[in-house]
Amino acid sequence: MNNPLVENYFRVDKLPHIWCPGCGHGIIMSAIARAIEKSGLDKDKVCIVSGIGCSSRAPGYMDFNTLHTTHGRALAFATGVKLANPELEVIVIAGDGDLSAIGGNHLIHAARRNINLTTICFNNNIYGMTGGQYSPTTATGDKGTTAPYGNIDRPFDITQLAAGAGATYAAKATVYHVNQLQKYIEAAIGHKGFSMVEAVSVCPTYYGRKNKKGSAVDMMNWLKDSFVDMKIAEKMPEKAVGKFVMGEYVNKVEPEYTELYDQVIERLKG
């Protein structure tokens, strides 16, 4: 394998990964690696934390300090890592169920604290690891193995959820729009404070098959056609009708948690 990105940032002996053919997660994982490379981070000082689910297997393949935790708790573990050693660049990888269902409490509180963690949500709108149950981001009416008659729940917009809870950087892109996705991940890594990038992924095996979305390529084309950039949506609202809006929802500077804590320590010395 003569790909310098793979050789530099992945544990080559642990590949291939476990994801199904056509899964969008590999695209997000490589976008993260490229964003880390572009950001010029020292591999020894990067810590990647995940919870449980398909996406949460990503850190195992990545050559950093990697922590695969319990379901939903990645942000809580990551908060401990970051506060104990603020020198580390801590990136959290979490699926939609992991982050917004079982881990929803940790998401809103990490955002509220504005602790300098970069969260990448691999949102495939389904619980893939357990075989296709509906998640908090499954669209109303869509099917899952636990929604055989169509989902009656209303879905979360995870980006807006994080923004509403106080995230100082929140952006959304898809695995089709990978350059944009990588750009947002880079911005999130560079951002001081709680940042979240929602990476809309595809799950052809469970979500696609259950909802007759066609092949993996069909699902990628669906992403291409269904998402519109925020700048275009603002200038030409007619182009955004019935579509999802991607872009930077929030990008602002506010005091960061670990710096505030260090200020307390300094003050007590005086």
């Binding site: 319990t70 809580a76 908060t79 401990g80 506060l83 409490n105």
Partner: peptide, 22 residues
């Protein structure tokens, strides 16, 4: 460092994360 977490589960999770940094 001291942190009051959002729940009991986060309380132990953060402590484990901190322990991993030494």
């Amino acid at each position: 460092k001291f942190i009051q977490m959002e729940d009991e589960i986060a309380g132990i999770a953060a402590a484990i994360g901190a322990s991993l940094t030494g």
